[in-house]
Amino acid sequence: MSAITVSHLQKNFQSKRKTAGLTGSFQSLFKPEYNPIAAVRNLSFEMESGELLGFIGPNGAGKSTTIKILTGILHPSSGEAKVLGYTPWKERQKLAFQIGTVFGQRPQLWYHLPAIDTFTLFGKIYELEDAETKKRISFLAEAFEIGDLLETPVRKLSLGQRMRCEVAASLLHKPKLLLLDEPSIGLDVVAKQHIRDAIRTMSEQEKVGVLLTSHDAGDLEALCHRVIIINHGQIVYQDKVSNLKRKFLTRKLVEVRYAEEIRKDFALKGMETLKTGRYGVKLTFDTRATPADAVLARLSEAGTLVDITISDPPLEEVIANIYQESASEPSELPCLEK
């Protein structure tokens, strides 16, 4: 069953244009000119119930606008969308009982009060019984490891702690769908890992669908089954995350340590040397041109191997390549793969 169905969704904004200086200001006052901006262009996609779908794109790609249309905050210029059977901008309040939202850059917790006060308030807002709210708070406190943070004023929490409380608050009413807009923005590596683990666990335990927007490919790798990459308001790629990795992660990184010192001009056929140390070397190769077994053979011929690591390059690099391809001709964006 589909949790989200989006069909030919379009959102246009009017952006005021003003030339520089005082003359420009006067001109703009008497004869304002506007630039039409299509934040979302003819967007169509589906998301299954319980699915973890990544909505990835650079800043200004239209991710947040789409999520705001799907929560009913913005009205689209044209097109259709159904979220859990509701048309968001027409049935916003009914839909609100079924979804949880986190807009990573804005707090929903009351800043000067302890998080527990916001949790209790949300219990009332989502019309839960007091006993049920208490039970749910205890459960979420354990799941998100926030038990000892709940009575501290939100302003005194670190960003990572606050975000865990934010996501936990959005799950208080057991939503069927969680819409997370940049939940890991500004977090350090450990805090990101913490929040990703908690989201994944909750999604598995409660079968909550997660639509996650991010420009951090790490979120996608850690959480999502499927990915939609959006740029200039259009889909440029959608597929399973595993397929994305297989198709675009053809380059591998190899880090090797030898027992003896290596030459400064260390090089092997079919491989590019990225960095050379006294005993170690970092190389990259394309699996389509050089098979992995050939690489291993050549590396072991070059000396006595002490340690070897073969890894994928960061997914950011892969997505950057897809962006670059799509950015070159924004008006005729190719849909790379379905």
Partner: peptide
């Protein structure tokens, strides 16, 4: 202006 209206509008109240 700061976008926090998104939360107010995405909750089940008037």
């Amino acid at each position: 202006k700061d976008g926090s209206i998104a939360y107010i509008l995405s909750k089940p109240y008037d």
